[in-house]
């Protein structure tokens, strides 16, 4: 089949359609660059969405739990081998994505006779200040987009993702503490229920930023910490 170009294109198109259909009801993941560090949030019922990768690297993902796990393990192995062989300072998100993860994802996507990765990813690297934080949006086919804003959202629908990102960028002013940031993220999460487009929350009306139960996952790559490993799981009830 792959000898015939048109059938190969059709197979790839079918594959994209299949992946989008499988992911359409997935709930979003968020990453926000703040003065305190990079905050990651996901709401997964019975499934984790937020993970530590290396000293300053973290992952937020949506999709099939087994595929998330395969990507996570690959990233952890590559990062630790690189950190051990050279130095932890040489483990950067750009190198990890460009030379390890993205080629593997693309290669897997193009194997049209094997099951594809059902994942959408946000990967972040903590910098010494906000301007040096790196956030990347990685798609199931290995394509990557480095984000220039301070908010990143991963959602199966690019339209919904853009609308939520734009709304959050307007909401997350510099004076907010982490508790208020989380509250805004939860409001955005509630505004895009599974399979539906983003509905802009009313400007003056009540916003439901209360903590959803169960399944809220919060983690911070802590800029203020002096330890090597900066990843810290946050308890939403402890936020000031």
């Amino acid at each position: 089949m792959t000898d015939e170009p048109y059938r190969w294109l059709e197979a790839v198109a079918n594959r994209r359609e299949y992946i989008r259909d499988q992911l359409k009801d997935a709930t979003p993941a968020f990453a926000v660059s703040r003065p305190e560090g990079v905050l990651l949030m996901g709401v997964g019922v019975g499934q984790s969405k937020v993970f530590e990768i290396y000293d300053r690297l973290a992952l937020a993902a949506l999709g099939h739990s087994v595929d998330i796990e395969r990507v996570r393990q690959t990233a952890i192995e590559a990062a630790h081998l690189e950190g051990f062989t050279r130095d932890p300072a040489d483990v950067t998100l750009r190198r990890l994505l460009n030379f390890s993860l993205c080629p593997a994802l693309k290669s897997s996507f193009e194997q049209v006779f094997a099951a594809p990765f059902l994942v959408e990813l946000l990967m972040v690297e903590l910098g010494s200040d906000r301007s040096s934080d790196v956030m990347a949006r990685v798609n199931y086919d290995g394509s990557v987009r480095y984000l220039t804003g301070q908010v990143a959202v991963a959602h199966p629908s690019s339209t919904t993702e853009s609308a939520a990102t734009e709304w959050l960028q307007g909401q997350l002013t510099d004076d907010l503490g982490l508790k208020d940031v989380v509250s805004r993220l939860i409001t955005a999460w509630r505004a895009m229920p599974p399979g539906k487009p983003f509905v802009t929350p009313p400007t003056d009306g009540p916003k439901d930023g209360s903590i959803p139960k169960p399944g809220l996952e919060l983690a911070l790559l802590d800029r203020r910490s002096s330890s090597r490993a900066r990843y810290r799981i946050l308890n939403p009830n402890d936020l000031a």
Binding site: Y54, D55, H80, A229
Partner: peptide, 16 residues
């Protein structure tokens, strides 16, 4: 020490 540092952190991160 460097080997153990990497081993312990690798285990903690990969095995959660």
């Amino acid at each position: 020490a460097r080997t153990l540092q990497t081993s312990f952190e690798f285990y903690r991160r990969s095995q959660l």
